[in-house]
């Protein structure tokens, strides 16, 4: 090692040092600006290349391009999402999960991040996690095309539930879908497709139609129609409850009786015309009755499926 010797040269004056520091500051600012722009340019170029490759389904090459883009952009969230999406397509779920995990830490309400995490969970057969993440994606924040993305996410959820054989929840989600996007031919087409996926078209379609006619939460309904449907729903739930708890001797039947009495009172108290507060009260009571009935008597017969679907939707 060349150990530095004692100073041979004259030291510069403090003014010169301060001046040098100021000059270096200006130079650094200029260089840093150029550096930043160059990084942006390179990142954009590689990202675009990645997008093209992903569009052509060449995910392996797309992943490489996105990785390079990400190394230039210092963790830009668009690059991370694009990379994660391509990685999921490639089957590199662990790596995709780490990028998405980082984004999730930054913003847990991000719709696309939740959707991609849900897809990973679904691919890893973690159905409950996947369903929860799909819900977070559906109700999460989408900076653009929110409605379209939410519908798409709900269809993925429906596919997941259908694979798990949870027919009630599938029909409940379909009902929700129709209520959120009424008169949307694309949605109707996909709803029909989903119904067909159950194997028999006629029975699920009939159940679905009946549930649609019973659902008091459809946004296209007038206040009067909504009240009428809430009344019908409560009435049918009460009937189901009474037929099930009659003489059962179940310890919960005391609570069931209380709820039944409250429902009867509410039904008999209704005057002609729209009465304020009736609909939410009736729906809340119907939901409670349904829960109690389910605890005491278990699943409903097939003929009452529409009620079950509407109440499943309400309870969610």
């Amino acid at each position: 090692m060349n150990a530095p010797g004692k100073p041979q040269t004259k030291a510069p004056s403090p003014l010169v040092v301060l001046l040098a520091c100021a000059v270096l500051f200006v130079v650094t600012s200029l260089v840093a600006r150029a550096y930043y722009l160059e990084r942006q340019k390179l990142s954009r170029a590689h990202f675009d290349r990645g997008q093209k490759l992903a569009f052509d389904c060449n995910y392996r090459a797309a992943v490489d391009e996105y990785r390079v883009a990400l190394s230039f952009s210092h963790g830009d969230s668009n690059d991370q999402v694009a990379l994660a999406r391509a990685l999921i397509e490639l089957g590199s779920l662990d790596e995709a999960a780490t990028y998405l995990g980082e984004l999730y830490q930054k913003d847990s309400t991000n719709g696309i991040v939740n959707l991609l995490l849900a897809r990973i969970a679904a691919r890893e057969h973690r159905s409950n996690d996947a369903a929860a993440l799909y819900y977070r994606a559906i109700y999460g924040f989408w900076p653009e095309a929110g409605a379209k993305n939410r519908i798409s996410a709900r269809f993925e959820l429906i596919d997941l539930l259908a694979k798990a054989g949870d027919k009630n929840r599938v029909l409940a989600e379909l009902l929700q879908l129709v209520s959120e996007a009424p008169d949307n031919p694309d949605v109707e087409k996909r709803v029909a497709k989903s119904l067909m996926a159950f194997g028999s078209l006629n029975r699920p379609a009939a159940v679905f139609r009946e549930a649609l006619e019973l659902d008091p939460t459809l946004p296209t309904l007038s206040a009067g129609q909504r009240q009428q449907r809430a009344r019908d729903l409560l009435d049918r739930t009460l009937t189901l409850m009474e037929s099930c708890t009659f003489g059962s001797g179940n310890p919960q039947s005391g609570q069931a009786e209380e709820l039944s009495n409250a429902a009867k009172k509410l039904l008999s108290s209704q005057h002609p015309g729209i009465s304020e507060g009736f609909t939410p009260q009736a729906l809340a009571l119907a939901e409670q009755l349904w829960k109690t009935r389910s605890a005491i008597c278990g699943p409903v017969p097939d003929t009452q499926k529409p009620v079950a679907i509407v109440l499943a939707k309400l309870s969610r």
Binding site: V17, L18, A20, C21, L24, F25, V27, T28, V31, A32, Y35
Partner: peptide
């Protein structure tokens, strides 16, 4: 002053 001066140089070094 030393911290500022050294960091400016290191930033340039990194960029170069």
């Amino acid at each position: 002053l030393i911290g500022v001066f050294a960091a400016l140089l290191v930033v340039c070094f990194h960029i170069v």
